[in-house]
Structure formats: structure tokens, C-alpha cells
Amino acid sequence: MNPFDFITQTLRIAVPYLFAASGGLVAERAGIVSLTLEGFMLSGAFTATLGSYYSGSPVIGVLAGAAGGLAFGLLHGIATVRFRADHVVSGIAVNLFVIGLTQVILMLLFDSSSNSPRVEGFQAGLSGFGDPLVWMGLASVPLVAFLLYKTPFGLRVQAAGEHPEAAASVGINVRFIRYVSVAISGVLAGLGGVYLALDQHQFTNNMTAGRGFIAIAAVIFGRWDPWRAGAACLLFAAAETLQIQLQGVGGIPSQFIQIIPYALTIVALAGLVGRAVAPAALGRAEE
């Protein structure tokens, strides 16, 4: 197999993971559990398709997709911050809600239970790198690393996730920080979904197919650090590329490649390859 093709395909497969993992990382570092990434991605993919369909412009599609992710990010934020709902339960509800709602609206607008009509995407070129979303996805990791480690906002995010009471006592508005963080995670994960939809020029039911959970696996395997999480995304994407390229050649069954991200996450959590320690106040409402 051509190493150049291998690298470009890996990067393209990694794009949705990089977007969603970067977003999930911000929310998790602020203390909000992000099992919602799957739903955020799917809503972003759906609204991007609508935006591009009705305007004929993929740029509008991107904006609409970001807005879709943002809306469900805020829903998760309101449930967990304002109403102190259990983060895991809210996450499951948001995912279920998005899967159902996208299908119902698909039926309502296009009278189809499986997919949207073809929509306009970006001119991706042969290698796929003409698509600006690929570059944005690759840029999301350094961007989030900068935001988290080099800005006052990032320090507040970390404080809100590690020790909200102490953060509040020095005048940090923990609720506000958490709202902004979960909004960022919604937008970024939404963009991951936008890439999928515009790349395939349509929305299909449940098209994210578990990618949001791979992204959360990357966050944990990366021990809640943007650089390491980004590397985990690339690793998982490389495994997938390998599986696609080896198809038909025989050897390792594809199911074994599929479980790599999940199995590695379990191993990482069990502390067998360096301990994965979550932010101290993850999932806890501030008092």
C-alpha cells in the first residue's frame, strides 16, 4: 500500500474524531460528562445538510451545522448545570432525542426515513485536502490545547473541573464557565458531523455510527490532554485505515480492528498503560 495514501486516508478518517474529541475534552475538563458527543455530531450533520440544501452553499451548511451542535450542547448544559440532572442520564437522553428527532424531521421535510437528497459540499480534490473542514479538524487540537493551557479562560475551565468550590471562592463563575465549555463541545462535535455529511453530500440515518463514542474513548485514552487525545484519534483512524486497505487480503478479521479503541480505553482506565485520571469534579454539580 502507498504510504502517502495511507497517511491522507488516516487524516481524513481522523477529522470527525479530532473535532469531537477536542470539543469533548473542553467540556470534560470543565466537569461536564460528554457522552453526548454522538448526539452533537449527528445534529451537526443534520442541520448542515439542511443548511446546504436550502441555501445551496456549503459555507451556510457549516454555519448551520455549528448552530445545530450548539443548540444540543446548550440543552445538555441546561439539563446538567441549571437542573443538576445526572450527566450520564442527560447524555443518553440527548443522544436518543437527536436520533429520533433527525428521523422525524427527515420524514417531515423529505418524506424519506433513510436519507436526505444530495446537497452541495466542498470541492475536496483527489486527496480530500481541498475541503477546508479537514484543515479545521486538524487545527482543532492545537487550538484547544492553546485555549486550555495558555489562556485565562482555560485555567478557569480547569479550575471548574477540578475544584468548583475553590474556583467559586476566588470569584470564578463556575456555571458560566461550564455553559461556555459545553457550548464549545457542541459546536466542535457538530463540525465533526458537518464534515461527514458534506463529504458524503447527504445525511443518512444515524450516520455518525458510534464515532462520538470513539471520540470519547480518545479523550480518556489521551488522559484528558488535547495532544494525547489528538494522537489517540490518529491512532484509532490509522487502525481503521489499515482495516479498509487490508480488506479482502485476509488476515485479521475486521471486527478485531473495530474493537481496538474500545479495548484500549478499558485497558487505559484499568491503569495498565499509565493511569487515566479524570478531572476531579467530573459529573458533579457545583454547590
Binding site: F83, A85, D86, A93, Q103, M107, A285
Partner: peptide
Amino acid sequence: LVPKQMVEVLQGVVILAMAASVPE
């Protein structure tokens, strides 16, 4: 009459409303 996926939407709403309303 309406897509059966409406039931999934309602399930999501029930869970979310339930999780949010217990502490409230």
C-alpha cells in the same frame, strides 16, 4: 399517521425531563 420514530423522540424527552425534574 406519523413516523414511528416519534416514539424515540418522546423517550428521549421523558428521560431528560425525568433527570432534570428529580433534583428540581
